[in-house]
Design a protein around this nucleic acid. Structure first.
Lengths: 115, 115
DNA sequence: GCAATATGCAACCAATAAGTTGCATATTAC
DNA sequence: GTAATATGCAACTTATTGGTTGCATATTGC
């Protein structure tokens, strides 16, 4: 099975992140097109596409001589909501901590000014 | 400088992701506490903490004999908004594509039913 | 048909990462 | 003061990753 860690791992490389950005923003891309201007060989780029494919961040659809690369929104969505959930819990935890502190020292007066 | 790819890379490991989850949900953690129950040695865990620290996902604050581990919300936030932006562009792109198709074939009639 | 184009696959190499063991050191409990 | 605890650092091993070159193959343009 594919985990969230797999998704993050796939996104955790500058070349692959560049690829994903291109796909999100730009027009249609073939394998060859996506491999240009990355500073590595086509076969090197191909390996990155393989990683992205296994993480289900993209899908490759062969059509005749060339194969089209398509971004798959679902994995992105999963990764994003994972982080969102982490942040939610973290906020909740901080809130609970704050309440606790207030309970322990309910009326914190300014000790620098004598009554 | 630390990039978004660095953040994703740091999150892209099951052990580190587990650590981050614990920190987001649970109570206070020391280095030692966080290293338990991960199936690896303390020193192994320590390396993962180092990676998380370099990605600024956590901060280590030594206090006497032990050192406290604290989750840093900012990097999470950056990672999340990066994905959000990708999704936004992707949606926009699809929308534009749809408009284009409608323009090319404005009135798509049912060809299976002869007039 | 033939050349050019788009792609895939395998073998290999170097660098990085994940994990270990071993040892050193500082703080705390008693 | 001494023992136990919490941690850090370095060396080493193995697996994974990122990259390359070389070769094979299928589709398309003319």
């Amino acid at each position: 099975m594919i985990t969230v860690a797999d998704t993050f791992k796939a996104l955790g490389d500058p070349v692959r992140l560049e690829m994903v950005q291109r796909l999100a923003s730009g027009a249609s891309y073939t394998v060859g097109g996506l491999s240009n201007g990355l500073g590595i060989t086509r076969q090197g780029a191909r390996k990155h596409l393989q990683v992205l494919t296994e993480a289900k961040l993209i899908t490759l659809e062969p059509k005749g001589r060339e194969t089209q690369v398509r971004l798959d929104r679902d994995s992105l969505e999963t990764a994003r909501s994972f982080i969102t959930e982490l942040e939610r819990r973290w906020d909740k935890r901080l809130e609970a901590l704050r309440d606790f502190v207030e309970l322990e020292a309910p009326v914190k007066e300014d000790s620098t000014v004598p009554a």
